[in-house]
């Protein structure tokens, strides 16, 4: 990202006087060191792209019958935490994982022989998680399926060291529900994101960061750099399966205030970097526009097309030109101009 654009974007975001938050660090991530690269996933990755026109479809059956081609871990006898995206609950906006997708994943993990299943999330903005559980319908699904929910924002914490970090912190305090799990299943929403371009699997890991320690919206992570923290969190906590809710996606001003976009897709895989790279390509992003995915390709998993085997539909068959947030237009000078205009609207 060009320095001039960064400065203009920073002024605009400050002048908006919106959250009184520091400007997000959207400059380039530093190149990874050899030590940072050492833990990168080896071998090819498999990502499934499957059509599901509606939330009324039999999503459990769709997931179950396509699982074997994706070469996922053995769930038998494991304690499993399901991590949906429940960032906030704006009305009429598909900002969160749809409860039908969560329900299908609960059934899937149960079918795979998990010893225990818990749904856990640490919403980004609202402290009152119970309120969001009710508003999104996720609470109702947990109740119906008799699955406990843990509010990560208020969970007990353990200090986890983070050598060779990208964000400059040498440790994180992480919730015990996540640290004690055998397997974490990530269930993100397919969305645009105004500070990092798109949010899928890896960005959804912000929800494992406890608000009681890091503030809302995970304030320290924003100050330390969103891309940097995305990479560090995914290095510290590895998910075994990602199932993206791309049935009704979000385009435009995501991750909260965007508009619904029907994509009719479920995207699955065990390598979060590969799943995100594939999702980004479906949304018409080039990987080199998305710093954190580019770096993830060096320290997390596979992001190059030749390293990812696609199962189900091809990217070309389902790709769509997503409307981008004004902060992430291909034309960077237009991005800066629009942000200035909107900033002046408030300032005036």
């Amino acid at each position: 990202m060009k320095r001039r654009f960064f400065i203009q974007a920073s002024i605009a975001s400050l002048a908006m006087a919106s959250c009184s938050t520091p400007p997000p660090v959207i400059d380039k991530l530093t190149r990874p060191t050899e030590k940072q690269k050492a833990a990168r996933r080896a071998g090819p990755s498999y990502v499934g792209i499957f059509k599901a026109e509606s939330y009324e479809d039999d999503l459990f059956d769709l997931m179950k019958k396509n699982l074997s081609a994706l070469k996922i871990s053995d769930f038998k006898g494991k304690s499993v935490v399901l991590k949906p995206n429940m960032v906030e609950c704006p009305s009429d906006k598909p900002a969160t994982t749809n409860p039908s997708v969560l329900k299908a994943v609960i059934r899937l993990v149960d079918y795979l022989g998990a010893k225990s299943i818990v749904v856990a999330e640490g919403p980004g903005h609202m402290r009152d998680t119970e309120y969001i559980l009710q508003a999104t319908g996720i609470g109702a699904v947990c109740k119906e399926m008799n699955i406990p929910f843990v509010d990560i924002n208020l969970d007990d914490l353990t200090k986890v060291s983070l050598p060779e970090s990208f964000c400059g912190m040498d440790h994180f305090y992480l919730p015990n529900i996540i640290l004690n799990a055998d397997i974490i299943v990530n269930i993100p929403k397919m969305k645009t994101h105004h500070w990092v371009g798109m949010t899928g699997s890896m960005k959804n890991m912000f929800g494992i960061v406890p608000g009681r320690k890091y503030g809302y919206p995970k304030n320290i992570l924003h100050a330390r750099g969103i891309p940097q923290c995305i990479i560090d969190l995914n290095r510290m906590v590895q998910t075994k399966l990602t199932i993206v809710d791309g049935i009704i996606a979000m385009e435009g001003d995501g991750p909260i205030n965007g508009t619904p976009r029907h994509m009719g897709l479920i995207i699955m895989g065990s390598d979060p970097a590969a799943v995100d790279a594939t999702t980004a390509r479906i949304m018409d992003y080039d990987i080199d526009e998305l710093d954190y995915i580019e770096i993830a390709g060096q320290v997390i998993g596979n992001v190059k097309p030749e390293e990812i085997e696609i199962v189900g539909c091809t990217i070309k068959e389902v790709a769509a030109q997503f409307e981008r947030p004004i902060t992430y237009l291909r034309d960077k000078s237009l991005s800066a101009k629009l942000m200035r205009e909107r900033a002046q609207f408030v300032a005036g």
Binding site: S18, C19, T21, H194, Y216, D253, N257, M339, R342, F345
Partner: peptide, 9 residues
């Protein structure tokens, strides 16, 4: 939590 207005909304 903090924003009455953000990016045009």
């Amino acid at each position: 939590h903090g924003a009455f207005y953000a990016l045009g909304t």
